[in-house]
Simulated assay, not measured.
Amino acid sequence: MAILSAQSMPLSGLQPTYAPAAGGGDQAPVGEKLVLHVRNGDATSKTVTIATPGTVGDLAVADAAQTIPASGSAFIPLKAAFRDPATGRASITYSAVTSVTVAVLQLP
């Protein structure tokens, strides 16, 4: 499991650095204006799941899942609802990691 760091995006723009998605999952900071950019360079779709550790009453809140199409990408907000109380970060898993790269972006 890799711990991803946020890359600040200045008003002039950013050419982000991407890391390979980790087979055991990744952890990322959460907060306002933080997004996870996932790029799928593979010929098959991949699903990215972010654990939602909260509950409403006695019911668990469903995890957030986003399907990334083949050769596609997605931006996923990293809101405070994804904060794991043990680590303070979001826990991210992938259905497969072949040709998947990720970056956490801090928007201005």
Score class of each variant (00 low, 15 high):
89 R>I: 01
21 A>V: 04
16 P>T: 06
71 S>T: 00
77 P>D: 08
17 T>R: 15
15 Q>E: 09
59 L>C: 00
66 Q>M: 07
100 V>Q: 03
18 Y>F: 15
43 A>M: 07
89 R>D: 11
54 G>H: 06
91 S>Q: 06
50 I>W: 05
98 T>S: 14
46 K>S: 14
42 D>Y: 15
82 F>Y: 13
8 S>M: 06
65 A>F: 01
50 I>Y: 04
37 H>D: 13
71 S>A: 09
32 E>Q: 11
13 G>L: 02
98 T>F: 02
105 L>E: 03
3 I>F: 11
63 D>Q: 00
3 I>T: 13
47 T>N: 13
25 G>N: 07
60 A>S: 10
37 H>E: 15
85 P>E: 03
17 T>E: 06
50 I>H: 04
90 A>F: 00
102 V>H: 06
75 F>I: 13
54 G>Y: 04
13 G>R: 02
1 M>S: 05
67 T>Y: 01
101 T>I: 12
100 V>F: 05
108 P>H: 10
64 A>Y: 05
106 Q>G: 14
63 D>P: 08
35 V>G: 08
46 K>E: 13
65 A>I: 05
103 A>I: 12
73 S>Y: 14
80 A>F: 06
42 D>G: 14
1 M>W: 02
54 G>P: 02
41 G>T: 00
77 P>A: 07
4 L>R: 03
96 A>P: 01
46 K>H: 13
87 T>D: 05
32 E>G: 06
5 S>K: 08
17 T>Y: 05
39 R>M: 10
5 S>W: 00
56 V>C: 04
2 A>K: 11
2 A>V: 03
61 V>F: 00
54 G>E: 03
101 T>S: 14
102 V>G: 04
36 L>R: 10
20 P>Q: 10
20 P>K: 09
68 I>H: 12
58 D>G: 14
57 G>W: 02
97 V>F: 01
38 V>W: 12
87 T>C: 08
40 N>P: 09
96 A>C: 04
1 M>Y: 04
46 K>R: 15
71 S>V: 00
13 G>I: 00
29 P>L: 14
85 P>C: 03
93 T>H: 04
96 A>F: 07
76 I>E: 13
77 P>E: 05
65 A>K: 12
61 V>D: 00
83 R>Q: 14
26 D>N: 07
47 T>W: 13
66 Q>H: 07
86 A>C: 04
67 T>P: 02
